[in-house]
Simulated scan of single mutants.
Amino acid sequence: MANESGQQQDIDRAGFLLTLRQRGIGDQAVLRAMEQVPRAAFVPTGSLTGAYADQALPIDCGQSISQPYVVAYMTERLALKPHHRVLEVGTGSGYQAAILSKLVREVVGIERYRTLADQARERLKAGGYNNVEVIHADGMDGWPDRAPYDRILVTAAADEAPAALIEQLADDGVMIMPRGPHNGPQHIVKLAKRQTPESVTLDEERLIAVRFVPLLAGKAREL
């Protein structure tokens, strides 16, 4: 029975990668990372049958693991290089951080729910993703101790990019995040930072429509 389950997962993973290609994901490094990181290791046991479906899945604390296409799309738009340090705000299950770890030198993940931070840390350690550090903290504040970051990925929606994150983004750095109200239209936006001695500007490009949980300030009270 276990062997049959493994065979089915292999079939599902093959279809999962085909779907990403058909939907326009063309960066070979991103596709390799999506192939190498088993999504089944990051979803709750009750959701294993849908681990490789192109859909978001619920996790603890009322949060979710993003749809694979959205994970791949946001990762691709970061235009990552092997020497980059990346800040991820909203680590959740740890799946996105694992994908990033295959593509860059260092990943710092922030999660406001201690339960999720602890779970993600354990999963990432078990999977050998040794260049990821998960911190239980307020994502709105970023993590200045390791700044500047070449890239910042925010996996929760806000009306505006938090000022602390803009400050911690390196000159010529890129931030990808969903923007928009909790109950209204949201889009992924790409923000490119340009800094001179006189000013800081953000070049903004609006991308695809999405639906994300809201970016909230503070550490969560619940464990």
Results as ranks from 00 to 15, higher is better:
Gly218Glu: 06
Pro178Gly: 02
Ser101Tyr: 03
Gln67Gly: 08
Gly24Ser: 09
Ala156Gln: 09
Leu103Asp: 01
Leu216Tyr: 01
Ala14Met: 00
Leu78Thr: 11
Glu167Asp: 13
Pro197Lys: 00
Tyr149Glu: 09
Ala79Thr: 15
Met140Pro: 00
Leu78Ser: 07
Gln22His: 13
Ala72His: 05
Ile65Thr: 13
Phe42Tyr: 15
Val71Ser: 06
Val213Arg: 03
Pro214Trp: 03
Pro58His: 09
Leu103Phe: 04
Leu216Asn: 01
Asp171Thr: 14
His182Thr: 15
Gln9His: 08
Gln96Pro: 09
Glu35Cys: 02
Gln119Cys: 06
Arg77Met: 11
Val154Ile: 06
Asp60Pro: 01
Gln63Asn: 11
Glu167Val: 06
Met74Ala: 11
Val200Glu: 13
Leu215Met: 02
Gly142Asp: 10
Ile135Lys: 10
Ala72Val: 05
Asn183Lys: 11
Ala217Gln: 13
Pro38Cys: 11
Val107Pro: 04
Asp27Asn: 15
Glu106Gly: 00
Cys61Glu: 13
Ala40Asp: 12
Gln7Tyr: 02
Phe42Ile: 04
Ser64Leu: 15
Gly46Ala: 11
Ala170Gly: 10
Gln8Cys: 05
Thr196Trp: 04
Pro178His: 06
Asp203Asn: 12
Ala164Trp: 00
Asn130Ala: 06
Ala56Asp: 15
Gln8Arg: 14
Thr75Glu: 06
Glu106Tyr: 08
Asp118Arg: 04
Gln8Phe: 04
Leu202Tyr: 07
His182Gln: 10
Ala14Arg: 03
Val37Trp: 08
Gly94Arg: 10
Phe212Pro: 10
Ala147Leu: 05
Val89Glu: 12
Pro82Leu: 07
Glu122His: 11
Val107Glu: 02
Ala40Gly: 07
Thr49Tyr: 14
Pro214Thr: 09
Val189Ile: 15
Arg151Ser: 00
Val189Met: 14
Asp138Ile: 03
Gln119Phe: 01
